[in-house]
């Protein structure tokens, strides 16, 4: 995503951030409005679409029956994969978007799955033999900065929207036999997403840091730190991007700012998700 800015525009963005009034009227620690739609992909187990300004992402969750990893017989599997659609811009056609896709996929896996955000043992059906595999697929339709936070929020919304069918496991199973299952229609369990962390990216421009940077603001950043925090204020993952080095004390300060922001952010996200769920149910 190349942004071409003139000298004056760059100055305007930097000066605005310095004075706590950004180009779109927000303060440094304000998010853009975040409308959420859930259940946008009917054939998925759960799905959600989030728009942050012009940033537009869809996340779908598909649950498939699989076999647990032999090293972790008591745990299900969760795979996160992000795809960058060519509708983001012609510079993402073909394989050119893959760099960004894999960067975001790894970042999401680190931030969301690291701190036991999803209870993997709840996905197990028969220990060592049968479990649910959750495939979480993100698709970026349009990008205006802050993709990681938007994807993190969309994953949370899609997981809360997911209904995993209940299954009947036929008893009297010999040790080496494959288990037989019956999927019960119309009976579902929900995934517990209350401990799933949220991702907050602080972008450092000049001496200040901002949340929810637009594409133009991101082009002016010296570095960015994405911090994933859960409801209790614990850090579940952290990624630093951007070239410039950061003083360790600055990083600690950024974490405390993110912690402060996360309280309000989680509350907003929760209310948006419940509104979306209510409107998709009716």
């Amino acid at each position: 995503m190349s942004v071409e800015l003139s000298f004056g525009e760059k100055n305007f963005i930097q000066g605005g951030i310095e004075q706590n009034l950004r180009a779109d009227g927000r303060q440094r620690l304000d998010f853009r409005p975040m409308p959420i739609e859930t259940g946008v992909i009917p054939q998925a187990t759960g799905s959600a679409r989030i728009r942050l300004g012009s940033t537009d992402v869809i996340v779908s969750v598909k649950a498939e029956l699989g076999r647990p990893n032999s090293h972790h017989p008591g745990k299900g599997k969760v795979v996160i994969y992000v795809d960058c659609s060519s509708t983001v811009g012609p510079s993402f056609q073909g394989k050119k978007g893959e760099e960004l896709s894999s960067e975001l996929s790894t970042a999401l896996q680190k931030c969301l799955l690291g701190g036991s955000g999803i209870d993997l043992s709840s996905l197990i059906l028969v220990e060592g033999k049968l479990c649910w595999d959750l495939y979480i697929d993100g698709l970026i339709l349009s990008s205006d900065g802050n993709l990681l936070d938007a994807l993190g929020a969309a994953v949370k919304a899609a997981l809360s929207n997911s209904l995993i069918p209940k299954v009947n496991i036929l008893p009297d199973l010999a040790a080496d036999e494959e288990p037989e299952v019956d999927i019960i229609d119309e009976e579902y369990t929900q995934i517990d997403t209350s401990s799933l962390p949220v991702i907050i990216t602080l972008t450092k421009v000049g001496k200040q840091y901002i949340v929810d940077a637009t594409l133009e603001e991101e082009s002016q950043m010296s570095s960015a730190v994405s911090i994933s925090l859960n409801r209790n204020g614990q850090i579940c993952g952290l990624i630093k991007r951007g070239g410039a080095g950061l003083n360790p004390s600055v990083i600690l300060d950024m974490i405390s700012v993110a912690k402060h922001v996360s309280i309000r952010y989680i509350a907003t996200l929760d209310s948006e998700i419940s509104t979306a769920e209510a409107s998709s149910a009716s």
Binding site: Q43, A44, S60, S86, G94, D137
Partner: peptide, 12 residues
Amino acid sequence: EYSMAKFSTGDR
């Protein structure tokens, strides 16, 4: 360029 989303079909 035509591309299909991973979640666009019944099976992934």
